[in-house]
Design a protein around this nucleic acid. Structure first.
Lengths: 184, 184
DNA sequence: ACCTGAACACCGTTCAAGT
DNA sequence: ACCTGAACACCGTTCAAGT
């Protein structure tokens, strides 16, 4: 499509590449997707990708940014639902992102750019959760504790397929409190 | 070392390979460790590894088994400490395994053998935790819920470096109960 | 500025052959 | 049964050259 050549539309071409890369990453997985395959999909030579992106990780980051952006657009519509509703929604959202969550964690040590993206992502989620918790009078260290637990459990649920019922029990246990077994 | 040739010691040679593979996986990471590097360390030709192991994932599984075995040996010494102590101990243990946790999750889709190992590992941990929770009168679905949450949070803490204090807050929050904000 | 063909330095794995 | 040299089919990335 959209030919480039004269400064017509660098942005468009870039979007096109991210499109196809995202689709392949999500369906085949990051490792299983070769730069050659992405190039083929975008109708360019493999090395052309390096004109637009520093390397494969950089391309991954652009895909993640796109996914995040789309997610936020959808989030806006239900920002003031109760927290547990939001968590279930978020789970469904991230399920789409599938193996990419695991991929990001596995590559944290191999790409500083990716690590930065990851840290920012968690900071962002932390702020969001903090906002919701503040409505319940929870802030400071407690808020950060809750937020960390929530994100860990969400990530866990993503990488460990869990049936709907167990999933609900887990979220409810977190948000409504435990079957108390404090202090043996 | 230990020459093979006549049926002297297949087991010994295999241990030798797992040794060096484990060391490299832990220090350089799975992806960053080539079969060639492992072979070099073991003093054999690269393709010789395929006499002992089906592929790289199979070798990873052997390394994981070794790590697990060692862990259990150390666990035996403190099996009846209180649960939160055990969790802290486990965290320290798994920290050694470092990026391998993320590696396993990232490769779940690419190796059925690895997925089987992973599922068995969680089942095993689940049983262990269930034993401890039973002492607090928790079993059935509740026990499985607690166990799932615990393992997710442990995995989360592993892949997201957290200072000692926050870590303790998180574990205590889980085992001693939340700052209650039930039912808005 | 944008794109390419060709090459580089790998990678995991297989095969046919040797002992 | 154990081990190897050589090759296969990739891989991400770089470079020099073209428009």
């Amino acid at each position: 499509m959209a030919k480039n050549k004269r400064g017509v539309d660098r942005q468009v071409k870039q979007d096109e590449i991210v499109d196809i890369a995202g689709e392949l990453f999500l369906t085949q997985g990051y490792e299983a997707t070769s730069m050659a395959a992405i190039a083929r999909g975008a109708g360019v030579a493999p090395n052309t990708l390096y004109w637009y992106y520093r390397d494969k990780d950089d391309l991954l980051i652009s895909v993640l940014d796109r996914l995040l952006e789309d997610g936020f657009t959808r989030y806006a519509a239900l920002a003031d639902k109760p927290l547990n509703e939001l968590v279930f929604w978020l789970l469904k959202e991230l399920k789409q992102a599938g193996g990419l969550v695991a991929t990001v964690h596995a590559r944290l040590g191999e790409s500083v750019a990716l690590r930065q993206w990851h840290d920012q992502f968690h900071a962002l989620m932390g702020q969001l959760v903090a906002g919701h918790l503040a409505a319940h009078g929870i802030d400071g260290a407690d808020s950060r504790t809750e937020s960390a637990i929530l994100s860990f459990v969400i990530e866990g649920l993503l990488s460990h397929p869990t049936d709907q019922a167990s999933q609900r029990r887990i979220i409810d246990r977190l948000l409504l409190g435990p079957v108390s077994y404090s202090a043996g």
